[in-house]
Design a protein around this nucleic acid. Sequence first.
DNA 1: AATTAATTTGT
DNA 2: CAAATTAAT
Length: 472
Amino acid sequence: MKKKIGIHWFRNDLRINDNPSLNYLSRNYDNILGVFIFDEINANPKLGSASKVWLNYSLEYLKKQLNGNLIVFKGEPKECLDELIHFFDAREISWNRCYEPWIIKRDKKLKIYLNEKIKVNSFNGSLLWEPWEILKNDKTPYKVFTPFYKRGCLSAANPRIPKSEKINFFDHNFRVTNISDLDLLENKMWENEILSQWRVGEDSSNEIMKSFFQNGVQNYSEGRNFPNKKNVSRLSPYLHWGQVSPNSIWYEVNSLKNLKHDDLEVFKSELGWREFAYYLLYHFPYIQRKNLKSNFDNFQWIDDSSSFKKWSQGLTGIPIVDAGMRELWQTGYMHNRPRMIVSSFLVKNLLIHWKRGEEWFWDCLFDADAASNSASWQWVAGTGTDSTPYFRIFNPVTQGQKFDPTGEYIRKYVPELKNLPIKFLFSPWECPNEILKNINLKLGKDYPHPIVDLKESRQRALSTYEQLRMNK
DNA sequence: AATTAATTTGT
DNA sequence: CAAATTAAT
């Protein structure tokens, strides 16, 4: 007798544990097929370089978890799934939902098409609350984080409790596309460098979560601001790819004993910000490209490729900015504090369009996430709803002094400044020539002069943003 | 999730 | 005169 087969389509849920679609199938089918489709045809935007690297090794890991039985395709999902359903005579297919506009559009069509042949089901595998569940009393979406989170999310039904089941993956001999055939890897040297401090895969994400909850989450509400402290989870890439579910994190942190109230609430609210980003992208899908506040559409951004290039390379001459940008390039990640500093610098001091920064982050970040990335850039630029006010312009010198007081973060990523006394580490241009001579550091040669005057560019940003406010 | 300058308070 | 508070951006 033929075995009953259900297909699970892996997307941004590269895990076995707490996977609603897999759990569902395992209750109804003796055997499950796991399939991943690399869809470059519909993707918009296409995956960034760092994301491809992460995906490559994540798929290899997942394939091992499935005893080699992960089926990998490259191409149009409709055709790939057709072939698979036909070959295995599968009875049902299911997946966990994604919320990127291009995926919603693709999946909607696909669902209608597949429904003609077999049962199709989708589940919530990556959000604590789905966007349509949280609405104001007048049925319109929230636009401000605090009411969204407190009145919306926290007073709604509790998130699904994580659950892991034994999944029987079908042992097959279907033709296999090698993961290497997906051509996800391009630049070995850079890839080895950025991967060197990461361990990709579901089990690593669980270990990282557990060890963060044992140590780093203590004093989270304070310590999370300091890029040199171990008080951030660094779970964002795993969360993006679904190697850990937000539900697992939510309930795990809730179960901790001896965690200060503030640390718990602030940590959870960061998951809340992730929810808010997905929420905004769902309800306002154009925020990936266009200002959420349309009065910014005529804003006088400066198209300055030379400054942008220096920013992206970490050669602005402002140490904390360069440290952040180099952390990004070298590790595929940037701590949240420098993320805010470098983006404020690009958007306000340089007056370069947030979209250019968003695209650079998209290409370089392991945790590149359409929702969080666009929402965060618009937050910094002031073009989003509930974003930072136009006059909040980070001073990268005082930010450095406050949040990297020992200078360790700067010295780590901008080693040419390692001998600079702490007094001038945040503003080398103020360092007396005598000291520069002593440590053999030539500004303009070993390290650049600042590409903009902080005071002047701050004034320029204020007046440019002020104009916009007048014209409203 | 900020900065700066002006102003008041504290020792 | 430094530190804290406040107003304005």
